[in-house]
Simulated assay, not measured.
Amino acid sequence: MSDRTPARHDRPFFAIGLRLLAMMMLATTYACGKLLAERGAHLAEITFYRQLFALPVAAAWAFGTLGMATLRPRAPMRIHWTRTIVGLTGMFFNFAAVAMLPLAEATSIGFTMPIFATILSALFLRERPGIHRWSAVLLGFVGVVIMAHPDSASFASAGLFVALVGAIITAIVAILLRELGHVEAPPVVVFWFFLLSIPLLAPLMLWWGQAHDLTSWALFLALGLSGGVAQLLMTSALRWGPVSIVIPMDYSQIIWATWAGWLLWSSWPNSSTWAGAALIAASGLYIAWREHVRRREPVVSPGEDLGGRSG
Protein backbone atom coordinates (compact mmCIF):
# COMPACT_ATOMS: atom_id res chain seq x y z
CA MET A 1 0.00 0.00 0.00
CA SER A 2 1.33 3.37 -0.90
CA ASP A 3 -0.20 6.77 -0.51
CA ARG A 4 2.55 8.52 -2.35
CA THR A 5 2.65 10.02 -5.80
CA PRO A 6 5.05 8.41 -8.28
CA ALA A 7 8.73 9.17 -7.83
CA ARG A 8 8.84 11.27 -10.99
CA HIS A 9 6.58 13.78 -9.27
CA ASP A 10 8.67 13.98 -6.09
CA ARG A 11 9.38 17.46 -4.77
CA PRO A 12 11.99 16.79 -2.08
CA PHE A 13 12.45 20.36 -0.89
CA PHE A 14 8.70 20.80 -0.57
CA ALA A 15 8.52 17.50 1.34
CA ILE A 16 11.29 18.62 3.68
CA GLY A 17 9.47 21.90 4.31
CA LEU A 18 6.23 20.07 5.13
CA ARG A 19 8.02 17.73 7.53
CA LEU A 20 9.85 20.58 9.29
CA LEU A 21 6.55 22.41 9.70
CA ALA A 22 4.97 19.21 11.03
CA MET A 23 7.66 18.93 13.70
CA MET A 24 7.05 22.53 14.74
CA MET A 25 3.34 21.78 15.06
CA LEU A 26 4.06 18.60 17.03
CA ALA A 27 6.29 20.51 19.43
CA THR A 28 3.46 23.05 19.77
CA THR A 29 1.07 20.23 20.70
CA TYR A 30 3.29 19.04 23.53
CA ALA A 31 4.04 22.56 24.73
CA CYS A 32 0.28 23.19 24.98
CA GLY A 33 -0.13 19.92 26.85
CA LYS A 34 2.55 20.90 29.34
CA LEU A 35 1.02 24.34 29.88
CA LEU A 36 -2.41 22.79 30.42
CA ALA A 37 -1.04 20.31 32.95
CA GLU A 38 0.50 23.20 34.86
CA ARG A 39 -2.87 24.97 34.82
CA GLY A 40 -4.49 21.97 36.51
CA ALA A 41 -5.94 20.11 33.52
CA HIS A 42 -6.12 16.35 33.98
CA LEU A 43 -4.41 14.02 31.51
CA ALA A 44 -7.82 12.62 30.57
CA GLU A 45 -8.97 16.11 29.57
CA ILE A 46 -5.79 16.84 27.64
CA THR A 47 -6.10 13.60 25.69
CA PHE A 48 -9.86 13.97 25.09
CA TYR A 49 -9.70 17.54 23.76
CA ARG A 50 -6.60 16.73 21.73
CA GLN A 51 -8.61 14.08 19.88
CA LEU A 52 -11.88 16.03 19.77
CA PHE A 53 -10.44 19.20 18.24
CA ALA A 54 -8.19 17.24 15.87
CA LEU A 55 -11.10 15.18 14.51
CA PRO A 56 -12.41 17.90 12.14
CA VAL A 57 -8.92 18.28 10.66
CA ALA A 58 -8.61 14.52 10.14
CA ALA A 59 -12.13 14.29 8.71
CA ALA A 60 -11.57 17.15 6.25
CA TRP A 61 -8.30 15.57 5.14
CA ALA A 62 -9.83 12.11 4.73
CA PHE A 63 -12.94 13.34 2.91
CA GLY A 64 -10.90 15.61 0.65
CA THR A 65 -8.34 12.92 -0.13
CA LEU A 66 -10.48 9.80 -0.50
CA GLY A 67 -14.12 10.82 -0.35
CA MET A 68 -16.68 9.59 2.14
CA ALA A 69 -17.44 6.38 0.25
CA THR A 70 -13.88 5.07 0.60
CA LEU A 71 -13.55 5.67 4.35
CA ARG A 72 -15.10 2.33 5.19
CA PRO A 73 -12.22 0.34 6.71
CA ARG A 74 -10.99 -2.77 4.95
CA ALA A 75 -9.29 -4.19 8.03
CA PRO A 76 -11.45 -5.77 10.75
CA MET A 77 -12.72 -3.17 13.19
CA ARG A 78 -11.14 -5.03 16.09
CA ILE A 79 -7.73 -4.07 14.67
CA HIS A 80 -8.75 -0.40 14.54
CA TRP A 81 -10.08 -0.62 18.10
CA THR A 82 -6.83 -2.22 19.26
CA ARG A 83 -4.78 0.47 17.53
CA THR A 84 -6.94 3.15 19.14
CA ILE A 85 -6.68 1.74 22.67
CA VAL A 86 -2.92 1.25 22.43
CA GLY A 87 -2.49 4.67 20.81
CA LEU A 88 -4.48 6.43 23.53
CA THR A 89 -2.47 4.65 26.21
CA GLY A 90 0.73 5.84 24.60
CA MET A 91 -0.68 9.35 24.38
CA PHE A 92 -1.41 9.35 28.13
CA PHE A 93 2.18 8.41 28.91
CA ASN A 94 3.65 10.87 26.40
CA PHE A 95 1.67 13.79 27.79
CA ALA A 96 2.53 12.67 31.33
CA ALA A 97 6.21 12.65 30.40
CA VAL A 98 5.94 16.16 28.98
CA ALA A 99 4.24 17.31 32.19
CA MET A 100 6.96 15.75 34.38
CA LEU A 101 10.08 16.62 32.37
CA PRO A 102 11.55 19.63 30.61
CA LEU A 103 10.18 19.64 27.07
CA ALA A 104 13.52 18.99 25.34
CA GLU A 105 14.32 15.98 27.53
CA ALA A 106 10.87 14.43 27.05
CA THR A 107 11.17 14.96 23.29
CA SER A 108 14.61 13.37 23.19
CA ILE A 109 13.46 10.27 25.06
CA GLY A 110 10.55 10.00 22.63
CA PHE A 111 13.12 9.54 19.87
CA THR A 112 13.90 6.09 21.30
CA MET A 113 10.74 4.80 19.59
CA PRO A 114 12.61 3.37 16.54
CA ILE A 115 14.94 1.57 18.95
CA PHE A 116 12.05 -0.20 20.67
CA ALA A 117 10.36 -0.80 17.31
CA THR A 118 13.46 -2.68 16.17
CA ILE A 119 13.38 -4.88 19.27
CA LEU A 120 9.64 -5.53 18.99
CA SER A 121 9.93 -6.31 15.28
CA ALA A 122 12.49 -8.96 16.10
CA LEU A 123 10.30 -10.44 18.83
CA PHE A 124 6.85 -10.35 17.23
CA LEU A 125 7.30 -9.89 13.49
CA ARG A 126 10.19 -12.35 13.26
CA GLU A 127 12.36 -9.79 11.55
CA ARG A 128 16.07 -10.39 11.84
CA PRO A 129 17.98 -7.18 12.58
CA GLY A 130 21.67 -7.57 11.80
CA ILE A 131 24.67 -6.48 13.78
CA HIS A 132 24.37 -2.95 12.39
CA ARG A 133 20.87 -2.33 13.73
CA TRP A 134 21.57 -4.04 17.04
CA SER A 135 24.63 -1.80 17.41
CA ALA A 136 22.40 1.21 16.76
CA VAL A 137 19.98 -0.02 19.46
CA LEU A 138 22.86 -0.28 21.94
CA LEU A 139 24.05 3.20 20.99
CA GLY A 140 20.58 4.61 21.63
CA PHE A 141 20.40 3.06 25.09
CA VAL A 142 23.82 4.51 25.92
CA GLY A 143 22.29 7.88 25.06
CA VAL A 144 19.42 7.23 27.48
CA VAL A 145 21.87 6.30 30.25
CA ILE A 146 23.84 9.50 29.66
CA MET A 147 20.68 11.60 29.81
CA ALA A 148 19.60 9.87 33.03
CA HIS A 149 22.99 10.31 34.71
CA PRO A 150 22.70 11.43 38.36
CA ASP A 151 24.51 14.65 37.47
CA SER A 152 21.54 15.58 35.31
CA ALA A 153 19.65 17.17 38.18
CA SER A 154 16.72 18.38 36.06
CA PHE A 155 15.94 14.90 34.83
CA ALA A 156 13.54 13.14 37.22
CA SER A 157 13.81 9.35 37.37
CA ALA A 158 10.02 8.98 37.46
CA GLY A 159 9.74 11.17 34.38
CA LEU A 160 12.39 9.08 32.63
CA PHE A 161 10.41 5.91 33.34
CA VAL A 162 7.14 7.42 32.09
CA ALA A 163 8.82 8.74 28.92
CA LEU A 164 10.38 5.36 28.16
CA VAL A 165 7.04 3.58 28.67
CA GLY A 166 5.47 6.09 26.28
CA ALA A 167 8.17 5.37 23.70
CA ILE A 168 7.67 1.61 24.06
CA ILE A 169 3.90 1.88 23.60
CA THR A 170 4.41 4.18 20.61
CA ALA A 171 6.68 1.51 19.13
CA ILE A 172 3.86 -1.01 19.59
CA VAL A 173 1.62 1.39 17.67
CA ALA A 174 4.21 1.43 14.88
CA ILE A 175 4.07 -2.37 14.73
CA LEU A 176 0.27 -2.29 14.53
CA LEU A 177 0.45 0.33 11.79
CA ARG A 178 2.76 -1.87 9.77
CA GLU A 179 0.01 -4.46 9.71
CA LEU A 180 -2.76 -1.93 9.02
CA GLY A 181 -0.67 -0.35 6.29
CA HIS A 182 -1.01 -3.47 4.17
CA VAL A 183 -4.75 -2.88 3.70
CA GLU A 184 -5.62 0.68 4.74
CA ALA A 185 -4.73 4.10 3.35
CA PRO A 186 -3.18 6.53 5.91
CA PRO A 187 -6.18 8.91 5.92
CA VAL A 188 -8.47 5.99 6.80
CA VAL A 189 -6.24 4.88 9.68
CA VAL A 190 -5.98 8.40 11.09
CA PHE A 191 -9.69 9.18 10.71
CA TRP A 192 -10.80 6.04 12.54
CA PHE A 193 -8.22 6.58 15.26
CA PHE A 194 -9.64 10.00 16.08
CA LEU A 195 -13.26 8.91 15.66
CA LEU A 196 -12.98 5.81 17.86
CA SER A 197 -11.10 7.78 20.51
CA ILE A 198 -14.10 9.93 21.39
CA PRO A 199 -16.42 7.22 22.83
CA LEU A 200 -13.49 5.70 24.70
CA LEU A 201 -12.43 8.96 26.31
CA ALA A 202 -15.81 10.62 26.85
CA PRO A 203 -16.74 8.54 29.95
CA LEU A 204 -13.51 9.67 31.63
CA MET A 205 -14.76 13.24 31.44
CA LEU A 206 -17.54 12.34 33.90
CA TRP A 207 -14.84 11.97 36.57
CA TRP A 208 -12.10 14.34 35.48
CA GLY A 209 -13.82 16.98 33.36
CA GLN A 210 -13.50 20.46 34.87
CA ALA A 211 -14.47 24.05 34.21
CA HIS A 212 -11.66 26.11 32.67
CA ASP A 213 -10.93 29.74 31.90
CA LEU A 214 -10.68 31.16 28.40
CA THR A 215 -6.90 30.83 28.30
CA SER A 216 -7.12 27.11 29.03
CA TRP A 217 -9.79 26.61 26.38
CA ALA A 218 -7.61 28.42 23.87
CA LEU A 219 -4.78 26.04 24.78
CA PHE A 220 -7.07 23.03 24.38
CA LEU A 221 -8.07 24.26 20.94
CA ALA A 222 -4.46 24.90 19.95
CA LEU A 223 -3.53 21.46 21.30
CA GLY A 224 -6.04 19.68 19.09
CA LEU A 225 -5.60 21.76 15.96
CA SER A 226 -1.81 21.64 16.05
CA GLY A 227 -1.92 17.87 16.60
CA GLY A 228 -4.32 17.37 13.72
CA VAL A 229 -2.35 19.63 11.37
CA ALA A 230 0.90 17.90 12.38
CA GLN A 231 -0.66 14.57 11.43
CA LEU A 232 -1.72 15.88 8.05
CA LEU A 233 1.66 17.46 7.32
CA MET A 234 3.65 14.39 8.41
CA THR A 235 1.78 12.14 6.00
CA SER A 236 1.61 14.72 3.21
CA ALA A 237 5.40 15.06 3.32
CA LEU A 238 5.66 11.40 2.36
CA ARG A 239 3.60 12.06 -0.76
CA TRP A 240 6.19 14.50 -2.08
CA GLY A 241 9.55 13.06 -1.06
CA PRO A 242 11.36 9.79 -0.38
CA VAL A 243 11.12 8.51 3.17
CA SER A 244 14.91 8.41 3.42
CA ILE A 245 14.97 12.19 2.91
CA VAL A 246 11.94 12.97 5.06
CA ILE A 247 12.85 10.92 8.15
CA PRO A 248 15.88 12.99 9.27
CA MET A 249 13.67 16.07 9.49
CA ASP A 250 11.84 14.52 12.45
CA TYR A 251 14.76 15.28 14.73
CA SER A 252 14.27 19.00 14.16
CA GLN A 253 11.52 18.69 16.78
CA ILE A 254 14.24 18.94 19.45
CA ILE A 255 15.06 22.44 18.21
CA TRP A 256 11.47 23.62 18.65
CA ALA A 257 11.14 21.84 21.99
CA THR A 258 14.35 23.45 23.26
CA TRP A 259 13.26 26.88 22.08
CA ALA A 260 9.80 26.49 23.65
CA GLY A 261 11.36 25.27 26.90
CA TRP A 262 13.63 28.31 27.05
CA LEU A 263 10.89 30.79 26.07
CA LEU A 264 8.08 29.46 28.28
CA TRP A 265 9.91 27.84 31.21
CA SER A 266 13.42 29.35 31.13
CA SER A 267 14.71 25.79 30.82
CA TRP A 268 17.87 24.99 28.86
CA PRO A 269 19.20 21.43 28.37
CA ASN A 270 22.50 20.67 30.09
CA SER A 271 25.51 18.99 28.48
CA SER A 272 24.44 15.44 29.39
CA THR A 273 21.06 16.02 27.76
CA TRP A 274 22.66 17.26 24.54
CA ALA A 275 25.12 14.37 24.47
CA GLY A 276 22.44 11.76 25.14
CA ALA A 277 20.05 13.30 22.62
CA ALA A 278 22.78 13.26 19.96
CA LEU A 279 23.40 9.53 20.50
CA ILE A 280 19.67 8.73 20.47
CA ALA A 281 19.22 10.72 17.26
CA ALA A 282 22.23 9.04 15.65
CA SER A 283 20.82 5.66 16.63
CA GLY A 284 17.40 6.39 15.15
CA LEU A 285 18.85 7.77 11.93
CA TYR A 286 21.10 4.76 11.50
CA ILE A 287 18.21 2.36 12.07
CA ALA A 288 16.21 4.26 9.44
CA TRP A 289 19.13 4.12 7.01
CA ARG A 290 19.60 0.38 7.51
CA GLU A 291 15.86 -0.10 6.94
CA HIS A 292 16.23 1.84 3.70
CA VAL A 293 19.16 -0.29 2.62
CA ARG A 294 17.42 -3.53 3.55
CA ARG A 295 13.96 -2.83 2.11
CA ARG A 296 14.50 0.23 -0.06
CA GLU A 297 11.27 1.57 1.41
CA PRO A 298 11.46 2.03 5.21
CA VAL A 299 8.25 2.22 7.21
CA VAL A 300 9.33 3.29 10.71
CA SER A 301 9.92 6.92 11.56
CA PRO A 302 10.22 8.61 14.94
CA GLY A 303 7.68 11.20 14.02
CA GLU A 304 5.57 9.36 11.41
CA ASP A 305 3.38 7.12 13.50
CA LEU A 306 0.01 8.18 12.10
CA GLY A 307 -1.07 9.24 15.54
CA GLY A 308 1.50 7.22 17.42
CA ARG A 309 3.86 9.55 19.23
CA SER A 310 1.38 12.28 19.13
CA GLY A 311 -1.13 9.53 19.70
Rank of each mutant, 00 (worst) to 15 (best):
S244R: 15
L35M: 13
L233H: 10
F124V: 11
P269H: 11
A211T: 14
P203N: 01
R72D: 06
A69E: 06
F161G: 09
A237F: 15
P73T: 11
W217P: 12
T5F: 14
I46A: 13
M113V: 09
L285Y: 01
H42M: 08
S121Y: 02
T273H: 15
D213V: 07
W217G: 00
A222C: 14
T273W: 08
L88P: 00
F124W: 09
W289Y: 15
A7R: 10
L125H: 01
A41F: 06
E291K: 10
W134Y: 13
A27R: 11
T215P: 14
L125W: 00
A260Y: 14
I280R: 10
L139G: 08
L26C: 12
P186C: 09
P114E: 05
D305P: 05
A163H: 07
W268Y: 11
L195C: 03
I168C: 07
W240C: 02
G64Q: 12
A106L: 05
F111C: 02
R74K: 07
F13K: 08
A278W: 00
K34D: 06
L88F: 00
R11V: 03
A99C: 08
G209Y: 06
I168Q: 05
A136W: 04
R74S: 05
L221F: 14
V243I: 09
T65P: 12
